[in-house]
């Protein structure tokens, strides 16, 4: 005889037991006691009503939220709001891209441009080769130094915590191909969001 599962016990305690559960509890003392105990716990909880605030509280709360919302300005675009969550990941990708470019360029110089671009960053070679002089332009761009400063304290564990290390290839190419304006925007988002370090990681993902 299989006893009721937690789900079946909950259904029974909440008053919608399936036929099998009803038949079982009639025959099984242990499950009957479990159902009764769950019902008692539910009743004890329901016996604690909400603390209702004063009726005036709603107008005050609405006014307070209205002020906060207007101070916050227009809703941000999704990528700005999500920037902080992926910031460590992006930083690792940026570092990987930088390292990849370095290795690729070193290979190219060492092999005088023959088969040198094979494989430092799979799939990124072509774009990186085209952008070899962008390397020096980027070195003077303050947004890159901000990104590298901010990423100095990020460990691989941090990166793994936010969803695993990035696959090599497309992501660093995408980052590398950002225009200088886009890099500055990314840097300012990272700066702003990391400044708000009070924001804890959500317990339920996706909000």
């Amino acid at each position: 005889m299989r006893h009721l599962s937690p789900g079946e016990l909950i259904d029974a305690a909440e008053g919608h037991a399936a036929a099998r559960a009803t038949a079982h509890t009639e025959a099984c003392e242990a499950c009957r006691r479990q159902v009764a105990s769950l019902r008692e716990a539910l009743a004890a909880l329901r016996d604690v009503p909400d603390d209702e605030p004063s009726p005036l509280a709603w107008d005050l709360l609405a006014a307070r939220i209205g002020r906060a919302v207007r101070e916050a300005g227009a809703p941000k675009p999704w990528w700005a709001a999500w920037g902080w969550r992926f910031a460590p990941l992006l930083m690792v990708a940026v570092l990987a891209a930088t390292a990849g470019v370095g290795v690729t360029l070193w290979h190219q110089r060492a092999a005088s441009g023959s088969a040198a671009s094979a494989g430092a960053v799979p799939g990124a070679d072509e774009a990186l080769a085209q952008d070899a002089d962008g390397d020096e332009r980027a070195a003077e761009d303050p947004s890159w130094s901000l990104v590298s400063d901010l990423s100095a304290g990020i460990s691989l564990d941090d990166a793994a915590d936010v969803g695993g290390l990035p696959p090599l290839g497309g992501s660093e190419r995408a980052l590398w191909q950002l225009s200088s304006d886009e890099r500055r925007t990314l840097a300012s988002i990272l700066e702003a969001e990391l400044a708000e370090s009070a924001a804890a990681a959500p317990i339920i993902p996706g909000v």
Partner: peptide, 28 residues
Amino acid sequence: CRRFAPAHEDALDLSQEVFLRAFKGLDR
């Protein structure tokens, strides 16, 4: 929020934060 919060004032703070977050992320 009041069920999670120890006191009325905490529940007000939490409620404000909930709506502010919803507002900022409304396009999501």
